[in-house]
Design a protein around this nucleic acid. Structure first.
Lengths: 202, 202, 202, 202
DNA sequence: GATGAATGAGTGTTCATTCAT
DNA sequence: TATGAATGAACACTCATTCAT
């Protein structure tokens, strides 16, 4: 994955913007002056580092996904038990639902991020790299499970990845429609997703 | 579900706009003049039927989801075998990926439509109705499966719904990342999703 | 000469702008809002008729030159005596010095209009047409003089045109530096220019 | 004429800017950063020597005219024959047409420089001085001609100056519309201007 | 003294909305 | 009822000017 290096100033612009997006503001509704205010700099300074508003937003999203994935990877690698690691992932999915900008959610989502950010100027170089990273993490998770004999290895890798993604989504769906499932705790939902995973990989 | 009745003119405005969105144009980038052109009417006429651009877009999306669900329900009810009906749903998911505006995909997606369309003025009255409709269809599907003894009924309804949603998403994920899975045909992916479903409900 | 037809609204925009320029405001310093105010219309309306500020200014200048030449031609053709017609031209030159935007002066000037309005988008189609019109008028003036035996016809046409232009400029120079020639009246200056013309064509 | 002394740095800023203007760039379109780049210094340095962009441009133009006149005077004083000196002046007029910024041309032109550079902050002290210098040179030229008996001295000085200016403009007009007079060489045009001068002063 | 990163007032341009026809 | 010409508020972007280094 081509590592893009950004200057400190660029990163502080990104972070301001990402915070705005996490507040749930539609990226297309954000004004340049908002971005400047969020980064606590002058409007003109933005244009010393980027060519257009579009470019700031595109690059900020790509940067944000990269950071989020870095964070997830870090948090998850701590866990060396299959179940712990899976639950850690569900934990992160749950947390990212609380934020408005869930890049992980978007990547996993049925539409994919590209449906909504087709205008991303640099997506060509970035999005599929991210997918690869996510897939790599899933493969490692599966290997743990196989070592621990929690799951079978007989199915193809495609099947196994699909099963993981599916189970994660089932949790996500619960989380997203919490109001419809008031009897269910988050822990219940995690257990159910885990059960789905184990059974589909048994 | 409160049925909202629209005039013929309103519907033709919706259809023009929906076509634009299916072409993948970001709804926030669509101009009133585009909507008018797509509906082949004057710009002013739109304001005879709606109060603002926001309102047209909001209502068009809600209308579009309703139509799509109506279509799905129709197509799916034909099938009275569990497997056929499930495959029919996957078929529809696949088709809706080809269009740029997949309302079904959005409803199913981890983010949920409300993440992206929070500004929807009328969502309060509509989105949760749609979720109920989808859940109702899933329950019917599950009942078919139980009758045919393809799946067990011992788990809770929540678990079963989550399993269905999860398996559908695993297919969706394959479809969305087709380029990464060139060896897999769409039929393979359907078979795998079905296997995941059966095993998680065994 | 390719006649370009403008709508009434376009002409009223031109006239507002030309008035501004006649007040001596540097065209490049004029703001779109000034143009709109001068034409007594909204700022946005300008963009219904032109693509950019640059375009409005360019086209207004070309239009203005055309109008001024039309006016001159009209005024001068009344006079059917050589001397009267020449004095009428000097009269117009004098008047155009009072206005700040003398397109005639610019065309005649040593730099030519193109030095200052190189950015004129349509100059290719217009400026040389204007030069031709001016030359045509000069030829007619010369023919009158020859018929009346006021001037000789022995020299080449180039020489004769140069002599006319030169004498006109000598008047113009006087007019432009009036403050240095306080003893001289405008009539004196006209007489002197006429004398220069007659002698150089004798 | 009050001689204004400029520091070396100021002069190097002027020269950079004058080069830009000679390339035909509209002075009003030149940016401070362009001026800095042309002078190969930092943007801030300009403000150590001048108070505003306007001031740099104004003073550069005045400086440039002064330099140009100094140059002309120098070149012309070599020639001690009437005809040679007149032809030398035409030569300089021709050369200055090749450059885009002809300050001489502007001074001579019907509009006068003040039409275009009314904003010149220091014009009050400079332009009329330049006119005086030019007039002085013309008077010297005329004296040469009278001494050599090439021209008569009976007319008033105003008449004689007007005749010289006129003849110079007739050459300038040829030069400016060269494309219309393809049969004419520059030498022909000079000869014609000289003939006009002699006849109008005979 | 010299610099150029940072600023924000200012301006060109867009486009949702209105309203006379 | 339907229209689209007209509007002006709003916003992206520029660039003269400043000032910390």
């Amino acid at each position: 994955m081509a590592e893009i290096k950004y200057s400190e100033k660029e990163i502080s612009i990104f972070n301001g913007l990402i915070n705005l997006m996490k507040e749930g503001i539609n990226p297309y509704a954000i004004k340049v002056s908002d971005i400047a205010k969020a980064a606590d700099i002058g409007k003109g300074t933005i244009y010393d580092y980027f060519d257009s508003k579009e470019e700031v937003i595109s690059k900020a999203i790509v940067y944000s996904i990269g950071e989020e994935i870095r964070l997830i990877t870090e948090k998850v690698r701590d866990k060396d038990k299959f179940k712990d690691r899976y639950y850690a992932i569900l934990e992160i999915i749950g947390e990212s639902h609380k934020k408005k900008l869930s890049t992980l959610g978007m990547l996993l989502s049925s539409g994919g991020i590209d449906k909504f950010y087709e205008s991303l100027k640099d997506k060509e170089c970035a999005i599929s790299d991210f997918i690869d990273l996510i897939n790599g993490e899933i493969v490692q998770l599966l290997n743990l499970g196989i070592q621990e004999k929690k799951i079978e290895s007989k199915e193809t890798m495609e099947y196994k990845i699909m099963a993981v993604i599916g189970s994660m989504h089932s949790f996500s769906y619960y989380y997203n429609n919490k109001s419809l499932h008031k009897k269910l705790t988050t822990e219940d939902a995690k257990d159910m997703a885990y059960k789905i995973l184990l059974k589909s990989l048994s």
